[in-house]
Computed example of a mutant assay.
Amino acid sequence: MQQQHKQGHLLPPPPPPPQHNQQQQAPPQQLHTTAQGPYKCNVPGCTAAPFPTQYLLNSHANVHSSERPHYCPVRGCSRSEGGKGFKRKNEMIRHGLVHQSPGYVCPFCPDREHKYPRPDNLQRHVRVHHKDRNKDDPLLREVLAQRAEGPSRGRRRRL
């Protein structure tokens, strides 16, 4: 069926919707890009999905390196200078919570012997060892609400 244009001219019928054929492939120029991105790790045997930016590919390269350039600033820590260190800066920052933590004690263990440096560690403990407890249990929420002393951590929130 043909459609009329405003000025009375006939327009050709719209093309039929594309048929989805399982054997259809993307044109060659699009094969190197995926939903993740065009930057692929070239290290033999690496199965990481392509990255959307060169920056993320460069960050990924750390997993193939033996370098650990980021060290915990706390003297005597096994991850401080001369110790093991970290491959990524964000890992070192997260580790810092171990030293600043108020200690998240499991409210469900009878002896209160399980103390964790980060709230996610306690949550994992509860999920594994206290399957009968709800993650929204008021006792657990109270312990998780503790905050380490010092500057604000985590995501910034808009006011």
Rank of each mutant, 00 (worst) to 15 (best):
residue 36 Q to D: 12
residue 130 H to Y: 09
residue 97 L to V: 07
residue 45 G to W: 12
residue 155 R to K: 12
residue 13 P to A: 14
residue 92 M to K: 01
residue 115 K to H: 07
residue 54 Q to L: 14
residue 80 S to L: 08
residue 133 R to G: 00
residue 20 H to D: 07
residue 159 L to E: 13
residue 47 T to C: 13
residue 48 A to H: 08
residue 123 Q to G: 05
residue 35 A to I: 14
residue 106 C to I: 03
residue 94 R to A: 12
residue 21 N to H: 13
residue 14 P to F: 06
residue 67 E to F: 09
residue 10 L to V: 09
residue 60 H to W: 11
residue 67 E to S: 11
residue 1 M to H: 15
residue 54 Q to Y: 11
residue 63 V to Q: 06
residue 50 P to N: 05
residue 129 H to S: 10
residue 76 G to R: 01
residue 74 V to M: 10
residue 90 N to T: 08
residue 119 P to A: 11
residue 149 E to D: 08
residue 56 L to V: 04
residue 131 K to E: 12
residue 155 R to H: 12
residue 13 P to N: 07
residue 134 N to V: 06
residue 131 K to I: 03
residue 136 D to I: 05
residue 99 H to T: 03
residue 107 P to Q: 04
residue 147 R to K: 15
residue 154 G to T: 06
residue 57 L to I: 04
residue 59 S to M: 15
residue 42 N to Y: 10
residue 53 T to I: 08
residue 47 T to M: 15
residue 154 G to F: 11
residue 72 C to A: 05
residue 72 C to T: 05
residue 137 D to K: 01
residue 55 Y to H: 08
residue 40 K to M: 07
residue 71 Y to G: 01
residue 99 H to N: 03
residue 105 V to D: 10
residue 35 A to Q: 07
residue 40 K to R: 13
residue 139 L to W: 09
residue 10 L to T: 03
residue 95 H to I: 04
residue 54 Q to T: 02
residue 109 C to H: 11
residue 23 Q to N: 13
residue 103 G to D: 09
residue 15 P to W: 10
residue 82 G to P: 02
residue 129 H to Y: 07
residue 42 N to H: 10
residue 57 L to N: 01
residue 2 Q to N: 11
residue 152 S to Y: 15
residue 136 D to C: 06
residue 114 H to N: 05
residue 158 R to K: 09
residue 152 S to L: 15
residue 11 L to G: 01
residue 138 P to Q: 04
residue 22 Q to Y: 10
residue 140 L to G: 00
residue 83 G to E: 11
residue 11 L to D: 05
residue 159 L to F: 14
residue 122 L to P: 00
residue 123 Q to W: 04
residue 127 R to M: 13
residue 149 E to M: 02
residue 32 H to Q: 13
residue 19 Q to N: 04
residue 111 D to G: 06
residue 148 A to Q: 06
residue 103 G to S: 08
residue 33 T to F: 03
residue 127 R to D: 12
residue 135 K to A: 15
residue 94 R to I: 07
residue 120 D to R: 00
residue 16 P to C: 05
residue 77 C to V: 09
residue 25 Q to I: 10
residue 46 C to L: 09
residue 112 R to C: 14
residue 106 C to Q: 03
residue 35 A to N: 08
residue 89 K to P: 00
residue 141 R to T: 12
residue 143 V to E: 04
residue 148 A to R: 08
residue 101 S to N: 00
residue 70 H to V: 03
residue 150 G to V: 06
residue 90 N to V: 09
residue 55 Y to T: 13
residue 151 P to K: 01
residue 104 Y to P: 00
residue 51 F to I: 03
residue 92 M to D: 00
residue 147 R to G: 01
residue 51 F to A: 05
residue 47 T to Y: 14
residue 24 Q to V: 06
residue 23 Q to S: 12
residue 79 R to S: 06
residue 114 H to F: 14
residue 16 P to Y: 02
